[in-house]
Write a protein that binds this DNA or RNA. Structure first.
Lengths: 351, 351
DNA sequence: GTCCAGTATTAAAACGAATTAATAGACTAG
DNA sequence: CTAGTCTATTAATTCGTTTTAATACTGGAC
């Protein structure tokens, strides 16, 4: 039953009032007038008593929670992990604590967790909009919240929400360029679900590059992932679409998948038909999720710099927090970040 | 600048004092004496004003934070994801909010985050001791904290810390039994790092079963994973150890890996030597992390029921919280949970 | 008519900090 | 010598709840 030491204890023991203690320990503006000798004494007794300020009292009074909310739409998506690592890592030195919530792609959870986060007076919110199919209007709640918000993986119309995205157009081009330069001209495509913004952006890149290279895109070899709220489903869908593709008997020497999961599904389907990757068919993915490098064959893919994206989101959020502290206007910023081609074992030259 | 609605506002508007409002809204003991009409009126005005209690004031006064701390030792370990999902899922209906921290296998982070969690007055702590090499004495901090603690994946001497573990001995036996029943007698083993409790438990199971089946364990085919603080390293190590194994030219028809990551590494090494899994060699893993089912060949493995383990940890934690609320004695409980053999494509009968 | 046991409600005191306004001494400029 | 400016410190208020002890009112039971 060791009573917890309070500020009053420090005050009493050091011989000053708790006001002085507070001012010193927070290095408040008034600390300017306090002589070093006093400061030292207070700090020493605070330490010797093992004083830890009560966060709840502090927040109640000062309105600052030193907390950042992080909302993910599906934790089990391997895409999340590294982004979260990036967020956590760059939040760590700032002594803000992230509070992570997982909406499970459900509107109800999203709303409930958002409320919980707001109840905890988060000073900023980072939303990881991976594999997101909920209506945009759910996100409208974010506007009203008056908490500075950064969205990763999706750009909102709303002018008050910042965003961090990978350059999807460029990424798709890099991937196609890679296949093309290896001599592949008959390329199958498994595009993403139509509802995903990423899909259209990537396709735009592909069309542009195809045009530039005079590469013909055979409509028979272009399939679309169905919509589903489960990110793992793209494995299953990749598998099935590839089987259909093979049944068509329209020949192709390479396959470009919407993401790594899809690529894994495709590879399985190819293997089932006795086709070896990369000997009989090259496969390229997108994202570079953690398993991709562990796969056999190791997957060639376009890497989203996920840790960097998380870090960037944090820096935007922190900047916004400072802005509201200084009562400056916060303006949303929208950043695109370049992907990187990771060449491994699943693609091979035709030549 | 919409001012936030406070309890006083509700009191004023409903015509009662804030004491009454508090009693009604919390359904405190005294609510017994308050007529339904009053309750209804207060609840209605609270709702109409959109009143949300200030969590910080509430916690300050009542000492209850409705928060559970979750400490992970490495988020990027795919083992974590599903356990976390299990924790989150079963915490959700209880309206406790989990606060997740990731120690990165660093002592300093562990301590810093533990302090942060304690500062937030967590009512219980769940520690996910995956791939854990920090000294036990770090965990000694946990004892002193007086917060009920549940550990997943490791059992402490300390009598005040509960634990949830998979039955490693049984799991290893199941795996070996599977290989044996497929006709494999020359089996290579990649054991876990010596420092991991899991390793010795699993090996115990293997020895017991080998004895029972009169199966000879060839010491030349038994290797150990080195110690490393990076859970991904077991892929790399699995790869290298398998290469060494192959160099020995001591024949084996199956390989039992310490975990799925190790198995992935082994499969890569086998493939590099032109050996096909499962045609030329069967491989079995342990854990059933998410990528295992996506692998080609899909990995046969021993599944740790990770969501169930997370859920079990939560129920122990919640029970402990209730115990301290009722001022009952909390006694640590230690639960083992049975693993499950998942037969997929990476093992095949020799017969 | 008094006393007691419920009902119904609230005033007031925490909880532990941050902050504002006030006090007071010391020094400097005029 | 006085007014004004720093320097150093603190008393008192506030943040928004929960909780305790107190205040009344009611309706029997004796």
């Amino acid at each position: 039953m060791k009573r917890v030491v309070t500020m009053r204890d420090v005050a009493k023991k050091s011989g000053f009032s708790s006001a002085t203690v507070s001012i010193v320990l927070n290095d408040a503006p008034l600390a300017r007038y306090i002589p070093d000798s006093t400061k030292k004494r207070i700090e020493r007794t605070a330490k010797s008593l093992g004083y830890r300020p009560n966060l709840f009292a502090r927040t109640l009074r000062s309105k600052r929670s030193h907390t950042v909310g992080v909302m993910v739409f599906d934790m089990t998506d391997p895409y999340c992990t590294l982004v979260l690592r990036g967020i956590e890592n760059s939040l760590y030195p700032s002594s803000y604590l992230p509070i992570l919530t997982d909406a499970h792609n459900e509107r109800e959870r999203f709303e409930r967790y958002l409320e919980m986060l707001l109840d905890r007076r988060i000073e900023a919110l980072i939303v990881l909009a991976n594999w997101l199919f909920v209506n945009i209007d759910v996100l409208a709640d974010l506007e009203s919240s008056s908490v500075p918000t950064v969205m990763i993986g999706r750009e909102l119309q709303n002018p008050s929400v910042s965003s961090v995205m990978v350059d999807n157009e460029l990424g798709a081009q890099i991937a196609l360029e890679h296949l093309y330069s290896l001599g592949h001209h008959k390329i199958a495509f498994i595009r993403g679900p139509k509802a995903l913004a990423d899909s259209t952006q990537r396709w735009k890149g592909i069309r542009a590059l195809a045009k530039a290279k005079l590469l013909e895109l055979n409509p028979q070899l272009i399939l679309n992932l169905p919509e589903s709220s489960d990110p793992m489903s793209s494995f299953e869908a990749g598998y099935q679409l590839t089987e259909e593709l093979l049944k068509q008997r329209e020949p192709f020497t390479a396959l470009m998948a919407f993401d790594d999961m899809t690529a894994f599904g495709a590879i399985r389907a190819l293997a089932n038909s006795g086709l070896h990757v990369p000997k009989d068919c090259s496969v390229i993915g997108f994202d570079d999720v953690a398993p991709s490098s562990l796969y056999t064959p190791a997957l060639t893919t376009v890497r989203q710099p996920m840790e960097a994206m998380g870090a960037l989101a944090v820096s935007i959020a922190l900047e916004a927090i400072n802005a509201v502290l200084d009562k400056r206007e916060i303006k949303a910023v929208h950043r695109q970040i370049a992907p990187e081609l990771i060449i491994r074992e699943s693609t091979r030259s035709l030549l």
